[in-house]
């Protein structure tokens, strides 16, 4: 399967437009995310952030109404057009955490995380080891035998995150993020400050293992801390993209969100942050 992909090429989106019910929700989006980098999509409500993420996840099959299937256009992962992948190849390459994950059935935390191993034919032993690792990473070990339905909102979100990471984990018991793309729709929206920080740190560490991440994040300051690239979306248009320093300026914030904000610099790591 690795022969399909050119290593290190990362994600490249070319002339992507998405039509949903006669409405153009994404208009001619072009951007690149290098392997091992984290791109955060920011923008106001209804800007098309989730639609863009869903398009990357393969939710909209290419036909004349949605994504053009011409060679020059589309979503390319490591040089390979993603719509040419089989469902299993895609599931072993792209792991997606949707915004809402309703689950009404009595699964234990371990069982939910194990669902992320569905695309792989690895042994129960390897899966068990991976689940233990993820429980440790997300501080879920004390909850591992609890019922998912009995958890709090933030705990559920961490379990779902662990499930998606189990899918991005790969075939062996050591994490290898190269060739893996992680798509996260508001992964930290229900988390408290401590877990938010821990997650941001975890993402950084996984990036160092080669993992490429595209996420939708509402908190600009968190996005500024986590991202290598910010993508500012409004009315389906990418109106600004680049490093946090380039994107987070009073003028851009005004253009994207229609609010006046002051931009300051973090005393320790010099990343920009905003106050109203």
């Amino acid at each position: 399967m690795s022969g399909l992909f050119v290593k290190g090429k990362g994600l490249s989106v070319k002339a992507l437009s998405v039509m949903l019910r006669d409405q153009c929700v994404i208009k001619n989006a072009n951007f690149k995310v290098k392997q091992g980098e984290h791109a955060c999509i920011i923008g106001p409500n209804g800007a098309g952030k989730t639609s863009l993420l869903k398009a990357l996840a393969g939710d909209f099959p290419p036909d004349k109404h949605t994504i053009s299937s011409q060679e020059a256009e589309g979503i390319f992962w490591c040089g390979q057009n993603m719509h040419h992948l089989t469902p299993r190849q895609r599931a072993q390459t792209v792991a997606v955490l949707p915004q809402f994950n309703p689950l009404n059935f009595p699964f234990s935390v371990r069982e939910v995380i194990n669902l992320g191993r569905i695309p792989y034919a690895t042994s129960t032993h390897v899966n068990g080891f991976i689940i233990n690792t993820l429980l440790d990473w997300l501080a879920l070990t004390p909850l591992q035998h609890k019922q998912y339905v009995q958890l709090s909102g933030g705990e559920k979100q961490r379990v779902q995150l662990a499930r998606v990471l189990a899918q991005a984990y790969g075939n062996s018991d050591t994490f290898d993020g190269s060739n893996k793309l992680l798509l996260l729709d508001e992964p930290t929206s229900a988390l408290d400050l401590q877990h938010q920080t821990a997650c941001a740190l975890l993402f950084k560490q996984l990036q160092q293992q080669g993992l490429t991440i595209v996420s939708v994040v509402h908190d600009i300051n968190l996005a500024s801390q986590m991202a290598n690239t910010l993508i500012g979306l409004k009315h389906g248009h990418i109106i600004v993209k680049g490093t946090p320093h380039k994107v987070i300026t009073p003028a851009n914030i005004q253009a994207i969100f229609d609010v006046d904000a002051h931009v300051m610099t973090h005393p320790n790591n010099q990343t920009p942050f905003i106050v109203m």
Partner: peptide, 20 residues
Amino acid sequence: IKALNAFLLGESQAFYLGIN
């Protein structure tokens, strides 16, 4: 069986997990 388990998460989640 795997597909049914994935379905409990939701249809799009099952799709992301490689289920037809």
